[in-house]
Amino acid sequence: MCLAIPALIKSIKGQQAVADIEGVTRDISIQLTPEAKVGDYVLLHTGYAINIIDAAEAEETLKLLRELGEAADN
């Protein structure tokens, strides 16, 4: 029920946006994420973007995970 999937914003018109979800295009509402820009990934839930995905944090987490992995190797 609280499922949300990443969607890539392709274009924006007011509070509506066109988003790409794995090659499928959909109209979504960005009323809850007014700061979303074209090129951002958002978390899409029941037709609404509920948050903007933070790409820098995603990178940081993966880096941390790889480091944890290395630490476990030692």
Partner: peptide, 16 residues
């Protein structure tokens, strides 16, 4: 889950 969650959450959504 830092790519999706901020400590303060989504302020516009909370306000709404």
């Amino acid at each position: 889950y830092r790519r999706g969650v901020k400590e303060e959450g989504n302020l516009p959504a909370r306000r709404l």
